[in-house]
Simulated scan of single mutants.
Amino acid sequence: MIPGSDRPRLARHVRLVWSPARQQHVLQLPETVVVLNPTGAAVLGLCDGRTTVGAIVDELATRYRDVPGDEVRLFLKSLVARRCVEMADD
Rank of each mutant, 00 (worst) to 15 (best):
L27I: 15
T39V: 11
L29G: 08
Q24I: 00
D58G: 14
Q23G: 09
T39S: 03
V57C: 15
D58I: 14
D58C: 13
A21F: 08
V26F: 07
T32E: 10
L27H: 15
H25T: 14
L16E: 09
R50E: 15
W18S: 07
T32F: 03
V26S: 11
T39E: 01
A21H: 08
T39G: 00
R50Y: 10
L29W: 02
D48F: 07
C47G: 09
A55C: 00
H25C: 14
E31Q: 09
A41N: 10
P38Q: 04
P38V: 00
R22Y: 01
T39K: 04
G40C: 10
A41P: 12
W18L: 14
R50W: 11
G45M: 00
A21L: 12
V35E: 12
L36W: 00
V33K: 07
Q28W: 01
C47I: 02
L16T: 08
G54L: 05
T32H: 07
P30G: 10
L29E: 08
V53I: 13
R50C: 07
C47F: 05
G54N: 05
D48L: 09
A41L: 11
P30T: 11
V26M: 09
T32P: 00
N37E: 00
Q24P: 02
V33S: 13
D58V: 15
R22W: 00
V57D: 14
Q24K: 05
L16Q: 12
P20F: 07
S19V: 11
A41I: 13
A21R: 13
E31S: 07
Q28T: 03
P20A: 12
A21P: 01
T52Y: 05
A42T: 12
L27V: 15
Q24R: 10
G54H: 02
A41K: 10
A42Y: 03
H25K: 11
G54W: 03
V34C: 05
V53T: 15
V34P: 04
V26E: 14
T52K: 05
R22L: 11
V34N: 03
I56K: 02
V53P: 01
T32G: 01
G49P: 01
L16A: 12
A41R: 10
A21D: 11
D48G: 14
V53Q: 04
T51L: 04
T39F: 03
W18F: 15
H25R: 14
G54Y: 01
V26R: 10
T39D: 04
A41V: 13
A55K: 00
